[in-house]
Structure formats: structure tokens, C-alpha cells
Design a protein around this nucleic acid. Structure first.
Ligand SMILES: Nc1nc2c(ncn2[C@H]2C[C@H](O)[C@@H](COP(=O)(O)OP(=O)(O)OP(=O)(O)O)O2)c(=O)[nH]1
Ligand SMILES: [Mg+2]
Ligand SMILES: [Mg+2]
Ligand SMILES: [Zn+2]
Length: 572
DNA sequence: GCCGTTTTCGGCCCGACTGTTTTCAGTCG
């Protein structure tokens, strides 16, 4: 049983305990564990196998939850979970996904109207039965019906960071435009978008202004709006025609730092920081840090962190994945010892670039000139090796022809350098699509999986490990193979692959393509801890794709990488 | 259910908006 399935079980237990109106701290413990497990970089089964007491060392997992995990690992299920699930009809918990419907309401609908799932809830709303219930009325009933219809007609996928950032930019441009522009003292997208998570659930925008009323007015007349969910004096929420929700918070300039800290999250990070403040006899909210009635910080984020005894923590690290412990250990004075996260300007080259020699549209010179002009020092030309499914894959002859072309261009473009490379397929049996005689003459040998995604975990892992052991391999590209919202990662023992890469001096790629962002942040962080090195590559099939590199840098920062961990942050 | 540089017991983040309410519960951020 993998981590995601175990996390789901804990989430369900939490939901059911909450519906049963149990102790809030008890069901929150299940939610917290689910969240932690979802973001773990090692499989629970492996952690347990390596150390029988390993599970309880995970924060938020104590004796009881560890025993449940062990039961699931060894028997494939949890009796306690199954007993709880049996108390409710199939599909019951899905009702919680309807906006405005929570644990109290599903319980009410079930006990009073025997409503068992979303379809029955819809029927009950259409028959005007909901408004007869205590605490319900016409308005809340029609809101629920509208939310159900929206739920049934739209996708529930989280958005790619790339798409969300574009929509956020468009919205910010709109709100800054015209007369309201002068009323805006600061504006910043927050939430998961500011933390640069690979997908985001909604767009959260923070705005500083002395005139929130005017801002809100302009906000709710944004032409892209499909529905206004709520509109207050400091906070409003809407759904855009594109289906994404936008939350806008308007706050006084004096509180902007505290509000940034709040609205950037993550929620788990906020709970921790607020708890720290509380232990120090202070209170932290989006309005500031307070000592009794006295506001002692709030204008900037740094001020807020320092006021509660912590160094500034970069947004990408705020996931409660160890940054709080590190920050507490270092203290305000230790700020210089926080990781100096890599930045886009640290990148000197791009080690994964395609041309019209294989499946891209531009010739080598055009691509190289574009990189040179953008200030890069080098690229590696890594067209695909010949392989089924790849258009114009390169055989040994064409590779050698390409070298002549590269030599010619290197004379012309010096000191800019084009490295000779290839993106070599890993065959199903772990052998490579090009012979060693060619590989050893290449500057950069990227290997990657482009076929047989469905192999069983052990076989897939062995296949990749065999490839990484080839002495000429330099980079393992897009290590998980997932395409966000399109194709799941193939099944592998990622820890074993990371260790093999380290032993064989192979860099792990952080592929910057917005729908890949692969290796994922959690594994980047784990691999860094184990001592891996990385390459942040665009995998560009057009020179304009060099823009993608910033998404690779986002992933790297979320994995706490510094420039020294990244091979293409070095000059040749 | 978890956890410990105030604690092994008694805490567990803090606030906005809505609808239905005559003072606030529920949901959400
Ligand atoms: N203190 C506190 N802050 C919260 C809570 N829920 C949300 N926030 C803050 C932190 C979040 O990053 C921010 C925006 O909320 P969202 O629900 O949009 O979450 P976020 O953007 O992190 O993730 P998302 O991709 O939207 O699912 O609001 C909470 O329960 N307590
Ligand atoms: Mg959000
Ligand atoms: Mg939000
Ligand atoms: Zn490629």
C-alpha cells in the first residue's frame, strides 16, 4: 500500500470522526497525519522496514497512528477504518466536496432526509426539501444547488502553476488599471502560487489599500467573473469563467507583512508560526504580531518572523517540512545560515535542449544564438536517440554529422559553447539506445524513460538503475515520468534511484517544463539530504522555452537547493 | 490522537463572511 492510499484512509477516518462530532483535536490529528504522509519523500513501508520505531519519529504520528499504518502495510487494510466506512453509504463523503457543505450539513441531510450522496442531495434541493431543515433557508438551499451544478459540470483538477500565474498576472493588471490603480499601495499573489507549488487550487491575491471598498467594487466587476461567492469589506471570493476561484484580501499597509505571511501559508506553516508566537506570550494573525493590545510587528514579513524569534523563511520553504525546526534552531541571529536558495540568475547554461535534428523546430544556430543573447554561457544539444515513437530520432551517423555542425558553430559563437549531447532512451531491459563508443565521445549523456511506463515497480527500478550504472551517463532526465494532470509517475523505488545516481555521479534532472516539474520538490529535498547533485533543464523544443527554466528553479527552491547543488549553476 | 527548554496532563491558530438567527453556527481562508 503506497503513501497516497494510506493518506486517503486517514483523511476518510478524519472526515467520519468529524461528522460523528468527535473531539476536534482527535480528527485533526488524522488530517494532519494524512497531510504529512502525502508529502513524505519515502514510502511508509520502507521507513518501517528500515526501522521498526521509524514511524513514530514522523511528526504527528504517535503510537496509535503508527499501529494503524503497520496494520495497513502488513494486511492491506485497517479494521478500524473499515468499520467506520461501513457506518456510511457509498459516495457519502463526496458530498463534503460541494462548496458550502460541511460535516454538520451532511449529517443533517442524512438524518433528516436520508440523503446519501451528491445525486440525492441535488434531488432534495430541487424538491425544496433542504430549506425546511433547521438552520437552512431558501438562500442556502439554492446556493447548495448551484454549487452542485458547478461541481458536476467542471473539472476538479488543480491548475498548473504556469496557467495560474498567467491568470493572476491578468487579474493584477486589471485591478491596477484605471482609477483604482492609484488606491493600491501594494499587490501580491499569495497562497500556493507564491510558494510556487507545482499545482494550485485557487488564486489568492493580497492588496494594501486605504480604500478597500473601492477595490472590492472594481474586483467584483472583473469581466472574467462567473460567480461572486462572497463579498465583504476586507475579503471577497469569486469564481472566474475559467473555473478557477480567486480570493482577494485587502488590508491596511501597516499590516501588509503580517497579511503576506498569513495569506502565503501554507496553512500548516501558519499553525506552527502562530503556535510559536503564542508560546512566547504573543499573538500572530494577518493583522500583525501583538503583545497584549500592542502591535509589535506587521509592516514586513521579515519583521513578523523576527518578532516571534525566527529568521525570515522564503515562501517556497513554508510547507512545514522542517523549515520551522531549522528556523527555531538558528534563531533571528542565524538568518545568514538559512539555505541561500538558488535563483534563476545563478544558471549559467541549459543541459537539455533540442533542435530540428530531432523533434524540435529550430536549427542549432538559432537556438544557441537565443541562449547566448539571453546571457547564458553554454547549452548541451541533446537531441533524441533513434527510437520508436520519436520523430527524427538520431542514429550514430547523424549524431556524428551533428558534431561537425556543432564544432563549426562553436568557432563562430565562442566563448559561448555548445556541448555535444544526446537524450538516450533507456530500453525496457535497462540497456541504452546508443553504444558506449558513441556515448564516451559525448560531453553530456542524458538518459530517460520514454516507453514501458507500466512495468512493475521492481522491474522499472532495476531497469533505471542498470542505465544509471553506465559509466558515460551524466544526467537522468525527468526522473518520475509524470505529466501533471495527464499521466501518473511510473512506479519506482525513488530512494533506490536517488542513491544509485549519487553512487554513480549522475545528476538528477529537474525538468522545468511546466507540465513536468520533475523531479518533484519532495524528492529534490530528500535527494539533496542524501548528497545528490542536480541539473535544472528546460528540455526546450523551441528557444522560447528557456522561459521555463524559472519553473525548474521554483522546484529547486522548494527542495531547498542552493546554487552549489546544481551543476549548470557553474561555468564550464 | 499527539506532544513536552513552563507540561507525561492539558493544551491543541486565528479570523472573515453568510444566512438565519434574535446572538451565532457553519464553512472557509
Ligand atoms: N492561519 C490559517 N491560515 C490559513 C488557513 N487556511 C488557509 N490559510 C491561509 C494559508 C493559505 O496558504 C492561504 C490561502 O488559502 P488556500 O486555501 O487558498 O490554500 P493554498 O493557497 O495554500 O493552497 P491551494 O493551492 O489554494 O489549495 O490562507 C487556516 O486554517 N489557518
Ligand atoms: Mg490558494
Ligand atoms: Mg484561497
Ligand atoms: Zn528532451
Amino acid at each position: 500500500m503506497d503513501n497516497q492510499s494510506i493518506a486517503k484512509i486517514f483523511e476518510e477516518i478524519g472526515n467520519i470522526l468529524e461528522i460523528q462530532n468527535q473531539n476536534p483535536f482527535r480528527f485533526k490529528a488524522y488530517y494532519r497525519a494524512a497531510q504529512t504522509i502525502e508529502n513524505l519523500s519515502q514510502e511508509l513501508s520502507e521507513i518501517y522496514k528500515a526501522d521498526k520505531d521509524g514511524l513514530t519519529k514522523i511528526p504527528g504520528i504517535g503510537r496509535a497512528l503508527a499501529d494503524t499504518i503497520i496494520e495497513i502495510i502488513t494486511t492491506g487494510k485497517s479494521k478500524g477504518h473499515e468499520a467506520l466506512v461501513k457506518t456510511l453509504p457509498d459516495g457519502f463523503l463526496n458530498m463534503l466536496d460541494i462548496r458550502g457543505v460541511g460535516p454538520k450539513k451532511v449529517k443533517l441531510f442524512y438524518t433528516e432526509l436520508a440523503v446519501k450522496n451528491i445525486a440525492e442531495l441535488k434531488k432534495a434541493a430541487e424538491k425544496r426539501l433542504l430549506q425546511t431543515l433547521p438552520g437552512m433557508g431558501e438562500k442556502s438551499e439554492s446556493e447548495i444547488l448551484a454549487a452542485i451544478n458547478e461541481y458536476l459540470s467542471t473539472s476538479h483538477d488543480r491548475r498548473l502553476l504556469f496557467d495560474a500565474m498567467q491568470q493572476a498576472d491578468e487579474f493584477v493588471a486589471y485591478i491596477k488599471d484605471g482609477k483604482t490603480g492609484n488606491l493600491i499601495e501594494a499587490i501580491e499573489p499569495c497562497g500556493s502560487l507564491r510558494r510556487r507549488a507545482e499545482t494550485v487550487g485557487d488564486i489568492d491575491i493580497l492588496c494594501a489599500s486605504k480604500n478597500p471598498g473601492k477595490i472590492m467594487e472594481k474586483y467584483v466587476s472583473y469581466p472574467e467573473i462567473a460567480k461572486i461567492l462572497s463579498q465583504g469589506s476586507t475579503k471577497s471570493s469569486v469564481v472566474l469563467k475559467s473555473g478557477i476561484q480567486v480570493d482577494l484580501r485587502v488590508i491596511d499597509k501597516e499590516s501588509f507583512g503580517a497579511a503576506l505571511q498569513y495569506f502565503t501559508g501554507s496553512k500548516e506553516h501558519n499553525v506552527r508560526t502562530r503556535d510559536i508566537a503564542k508560546r512566547k506570550g504573543l499573538k500572530l494573525s494577518e493583522y500583525g504580531v501583538f503583545d497584549g493590545d500592542k502591535m509589535i510587528a506587521g509592516k514586513t514579513e521579515k519583521e513578523v518572523y523576527n518578532a516571534i524569534g525566527l529568521p525570515f523563511i522564503p515562501p517556497e520553504m513554508r510547507e512545514n517540512r522542517g523549515e520551522i525546526e531549522l528556523a527555531e534552531k538558528l534563531g533571528v541571529k542565524g538568518e545568514k545560515n538559512m539555505p541561500k536558495l538558488i535563483e534563476l540568475k545563478d544558471l549559467r547554461g541549459d543541459l537539455h535542449v533540442h533542435s530540428d535534428w530531432s523533434d524540435a523546430s529550430q536549427d542549432i544556430e538559432t537556438v544557441a544564438m537565443a541562449y547566448k543573447k539571453a546571457g547564458f554561457e553554454y547549452i548541451a544539444m541533446t537531441d533524441h536517440s533513434a527510437f520508436i515513437g520519436i520523430t527524427h530520432g538520431m542514429d550514430e551517423n547523424r549524431i556524428q554529422q551533428q558534431w561537425k555542425e556543432i564544432d563549426k558553430l562553436n568557432k563562430k559563437l565562442a566563448p559561448f559553447k555548445i556541448l555535444k549531447g544526446s537524450e538516450v532512451d533507456i530500453h525496457k531491459d535497462g540497456t541504452l539506445a546508443l553504444p558506449d563508443e558513441i556515448l564516451k565521445k559525448l560531453d553530456i549523456v542524458i538518459v530517460a524513460v520514454h516507453s514501458a511506463f507500466m512495468l512493475p515497480e521492481a522491474e522499472q527500478t532495476a531497469r533505471i538503475i542498470k542505465a544509471l550504472k553506465n559509466p558515460y551517463v551524466t544526467i537522468f532526465a525527468h526522473p518520475s515520468g509524470r505529466l501533471i494532470n495527464k499521466r501518473p509517475a511510473y512506479k519506482v523505488d525513488m530512494d533506490a534511484i536517488i542513491k544509485t545516481a549519487i553512487e554513480n555521479d549522475v545528476a538528477l534532472e529537474i525538468n522545468s517544463s511546466p507540465s513536468r516539474m520533475d523531479l518533484q520538490d519532495i524528492y529534490v529535498k530528500r535527494a539533496k539530504e542524501l548528497g545528490a547533485k542536480f541539473a535544472i533543464n528546460s528540455d526546450s523544443h523551441h528557444s522560447s522555452h528557456m522561459e521555463y527554466l524559472k519553473f525548474g528553479v521554483f522546484v529547486a527552491r522548494r527542495g531547498w537547493l542552493e546554487a552549489k547543488n546544481v551543476i549548470n549553476a557553474k561555468s564550464l
